[in-house]
């Protein structure tokens, strides 16, 4: 465990906390894409199939449980909570997740390290995670005024990805740890998707104005 990996996990955790904070204290999920949240729940459900079979560390198991529990509870809140669900921008959140899930599934069946159920599901989760933010970015672009918590949520998610890339470089240099090219490319694609958002986020922060993305 190096500082980049730990910071990456912590920013990831913080992004979830920011989102839960919005849901629990403001009782609002305005500006949050349910499609993206459902994709994340799918990512964790398919990636952590090994949670009870392959033990890595207590830290690892606890984090997996946290990501599983929080992603499913966020989806539940947005879909079923009496008050929270009313703030969901259903008309704006029109991205079809099947258009993302199906190509990822086909790609995972064709491009994988080992053709076993667990391995294909794991690869599938990497591909889905790479594009899971897209519905959220589309929704952000349609939202006139992006509130601070939503902006911070997406920023933290992007920071988590950027830190993971630094972590891979660091691990390669120090441990000669080899990151498989599937992980590397899907991680890189995922991080690049945030580049545009980062540009506008940092600008709005520097100029102290409300975050707004160009249409």
């Amino acid at each position: 465990m190096n500082i980049f990996r730990l910071s990456g996990d912590m920013t990831h955790l913080m992004s979830v906390i920011v989102l839960l904070l919005k849901i629990h204290t403001i009782k609002s999920c305005a500006g949050i894409s349910l499609k993206t949240q459902e994709l994340y729940a799918l990512v964790f459900a398919t990636r952590y199939l090994d949670i009870f079979t392959d033990f890595v560390s207590v830290y690892n198991t606890i984090m997996k449980l946290i990501f599983l529990a929080t992603s499913f509870s966020i989806v539940w809140y947005m879909r079923h909570h009496k008050i929270v669900r009313r703030s969901y921008d259903k008309e704006q959140d029109t991205f079809r997740h099947l258009f993302l899930i199906l190509p990822c599934l086909i790609l995972a069946l064709v491009v994988n390290e080992k053709f076993t159920f667990k391995e294909v599901m794991w690869t599938f989760s990497l591909y889905v995670e790479a594009v899971a933010i897209l519905p959220q970015l589309v929704l952000l672009q349609r939202t006139k005024n992006i509130d601070n918590l939503t902006g911070q949520y997406v920023f933290l998610l992007g920071a988590y990805r950027a830190l993971y890339i630094l972590n891979w470089i660091y691990r390669y240099l120090t441990e000669k740890h080899f990151v498989h090219w599937i992980t590397w490319i899907s991680g890189l694609v995922q991080t690049l998707l945030y580049a545009d958002f980062f540009y506008y986020y940092i600008n709005s922060w520097k100029n102290n104005v409300r975050l707004q993305l160009p249409a």
């Binding site: 990996r5 996990d9 990831h12 090994d50 392959d54 890595v56 560390s57 690892n60 984090m63 997996k64 990501f67 794991w122 993971y164 972590n167 441990e175 000669k176 740890h177 080899f178 498989h180």
Partner: peptide, 10 residues
């Protein structure tokens, strides 16, 4: 290395 197959990241 042998570590290649250990999925120790989240």
């Amino acid at each position: 290395s042998k570590e290649e197959d250990v999925k120790d990241e989240l």
